[in-house]
Design a protein around this nucleic acid. Sequence first.
DNA 1: CTGAAAGCGCTTACAG
DNA 2: CTGAAAGCGCTTACAG
Lengths: 338, 338
Amino acid sequence: MVTMQDVARRAGVTKQTVSNVVTGRIAVRPVTAARVRAAIDELGYVPNLVARSLATGSTRTVGLFVPTVGTAFYADLVEEAEDALDEHGHHLLLCTTRQNGDRARRHLAGLTSRSVDALLIAGDQDLSDHLPLLSEARFPVALCAWEADAPEQFPMVTVDYEEGGHLAGRHLRDLGHEHVAILASPAHTRRVEGFRRAFAETGRPLPDNAVHLAHEPSYHGGFDAAGTALAATPGVTALFATHDVLAVGALEAARVAGRSVPDDLSVVAYDDCPAGPSSRPALTSVVLPRRRMAREAVALLLDAAGGEEPLPRHRMLPPELVVRNSTGRARPGHAAPR
Amino acid sequence: MVTMQDVARRAGVTKQTVSNVVTGRIAVRPVTAARVRAAIDELGYVPNLVARSLATGSTRTVGLFVPTVGTAFYADLVEEAEDALDEHGHHLLLCTTRQNGDRARRHLAGLTSRSVDALLIAGDQDLSDHLPLLSEARFPVALCAWEADAPEQFPMVTVDYEEGGHLAGRHLRDLGHEHVAILASPAHTRRVEGFRRAFAETGRPLPDNAVHLAHEPSYHGGFDAAGTALAATPGVTALFATHDVLAVGALEAARVAGRSVPDDLSVVAYDDCPAGPSSRPALTSVVLPRRRMAREAVALLLDAAGGEEPLPRHRMLPPELVVRNSTGRARPGHAAPR
DNA sequence: CTGAAAGCGCTTACAG
DNA sequence: CTGAAAGCGCTTACAG
């Protein structure tokens, strides 16, 4: 391995000067700098970042916790975070927590001993119980894609999940739907709240039993929940699924039940995934600015790593409703009498 | 930050002894060890891995290059690699190359200066042109999920892509299909070769124009290619898509063309993705042992990082055909005369 | 089994 | 603008 010392010798200077031209921290006379650079090229010198890290305390590496990388949402988030990090010369240490508390804990220890500059935690599904542990982290921590109650102590950029639900509800309401069912994953309380609000604010709140919990966040979970919902209340004219995969299952359940979408039944989804636009019919869905969120979260994190107090500490990005072909006007004939 | 020296002072020993109990490299008298461990707990000492890395030369960190993390195949591969790495106390530096040669190159430099122990490159889509660069890597490199010609110099574990195509072809052939079309991504040459072989070996090779290239590896790419294929040769009774997403698009194209699957048309896919089992009808598909592949690749890589020569250097895992509901017997009525 | 010394490759004040 | 010295927190022979 060729070292800074080797370059110095070759260029006829001291290694301190080499360090100066490499880091650019202190200006070096142009002729000298050129000689040093030539020596670097000739020798193929590559700075040893672990030595630099030991001296400076910074590794230019950040950790990223995500529940999984197997959904379009988190896959996009990871890729965008990586891009943003790359632009700042940082690298990414990935940990997919996958509902495994021990792994998360072990990784946290690993990140600590590796002296990462900061840690970004995306998604609150797995980490809620580890929050106390995080207060002891020796590096800045930031949160993103957080749907549950946000711990005040960490900077965060997230999405207005509740407003997303509200958009979905208002859309259905404006289309004249009165009898609707909700297919929800247990963690999606905000989305459900927002959806309910859309109906409550016109004086027609949804009944408690409008919600049907999916036993798993998958096609089958959606299929089963939709089947139950349709059987329980035949008068239902619209379905709100708190996640796209649930909606795809719901589409099939509708077909099995002899309901045609959107004529006999409207379906609105949440968290746009690739299957959404390409399913039949294409799903109307709440879409979250996940890439933008990842990018802003990284900026926040890097600010914190640089010792700056990020302001504002908590950002909330707005969702959007993309109307496609799975929703239409309520057809009175199908609504059960109140 | 509490250091080894602090622990030593507290325990009344020298830091060398602390090092010995932490690493376990040299045995320490039980009473002493206990005293040291107590001091570690009291002080909350965490070993500084970057200092250790500088001294030992090993970072217990490996790099992973994947084309993307946005498909089920690579998402699973990443998660499994992470698990396998975790079991060996290693961490994962992720780089999704996304057809961006500059990023890959920049990351390679980053990994070099960070002194990773090794690099795993999954997928040959983006890296083929960077191979020469890799020979200069200062750490072991291993390959996996490699469909193109394998560079001999690197250890590798991959899947028999050709045999996967052959399985698909034999399945269709055995079902009596004679007039088939192939919807392919340009890079999937092995899959196509294997598929052709299944027909050639019975003396009825497929015509050159049986292949229809998808303009992009997506639902739309599959939809368009299938539309073209069906229009070009109305006598076709079966479609082979070299990727699941293409097959999902093909399913819709079949519907538009008034062909019902599997009665009027059989469709077989490749590279099982979640949409496969849940599409209508569920897709018959070639499935690759991606998790097993990731795991074996990590084992290979860690062997190499440990200085061992991995044997065998090249492993090829067998694919499987999962028969679901998108394939059935050829119905003579639909086949055009030869 | 324990202790004193040198070294890993860099950066950071501090004199010149 | 350049050079000599100390230090980042560990590990690794090497004596005792």
